[in-house]
Design a protein around this nucleic acid. Sequence first.
DNA 1: TTCATGTGTAAGAAAGTTCTGACACGTGAA
DNA 2: TTCACGTGTCAGAACTTTCTTACACATGAA
Lengths: 116, 116
Amino acid sequence: MTAARPTGDDLVEMLAALANPLRLRIVARLAHGRDYVSHLAREIGISRPLLHMHLQRLEAAGLITGTLELSEDGKAMKYYEVTDFDLHLTASAVAEAARTLDGPESDPGPTRKERH
Amino acid sequence: MTAARPTGDDLVEMLAALANPLRLRIVARLAHGRDYVSHLAREIGISRPLLHMHLQRLEAAGLITGTLELSEDGKAMKYYEVTDFDLHLTASAVAEAARTLDGPESDPGPTRKERH
DNA sequence: TTCATGTGTAAGAAAGTTCTGACACGTGAA
DNA sequence: TTCACGTGTCAGAACTTTCTTACACATGAA
């Protein structure tokens, strides 16, 4: 399990990344096996720039990772695959995560540094 | 556990509801005990209309429930509390949920009815 | 009546997200 | 050289979300 206890802000980023039907589908596709951008775009039926944007969002959240590889015929291919994330969401888990949110604190939790 | 296997679209709604620092804080607060709108707004430090909006979003997603009650001095008070939701998010769980998404299907999953 | 408390909603500004279409660059094969 | 395939990025339109301000109503107490 990659991130058992992400920061509150990191959790928000992960949730925001998954809170979209298209991105849910992308993760679902990659869960069945790695794929490269152009092919994935054709499979899902969306434009490549659009897919590129969604992949960025998912990768930034740490849910997928991309690696640039060279195919046999010399083409640069960007392959994406899912990370083995594991998020367990309950009311108390949310309460715990909220302690590490940036901004006006109302709960005496451990203070964190600013986002990079 | 309230919704072990929500529809893909319901899952998106739940995730979208949680994917916001303010709403995460609201759920965290309510996880420690029920509260009414005006008081909660003062506690968190936001305006009442704004809180109202966020509560609507959380309730629509099924994460909290509100009940209108009469206080001892006859005032109408809207109390909110968390439901005992339990979401387990992994790549394969997402793959499973994506099968019940509305729209252009690319996976031969069980078809669902339109959103009410 | 007036004040402090509670409820809700509506209009509009500001900011963020989503999506299209066009552009740039690279390779190998015809 | 031209074509088919891969990569990436940018600008702007369209839409959604977030937030403020102002309004409406109700109650009990002063």
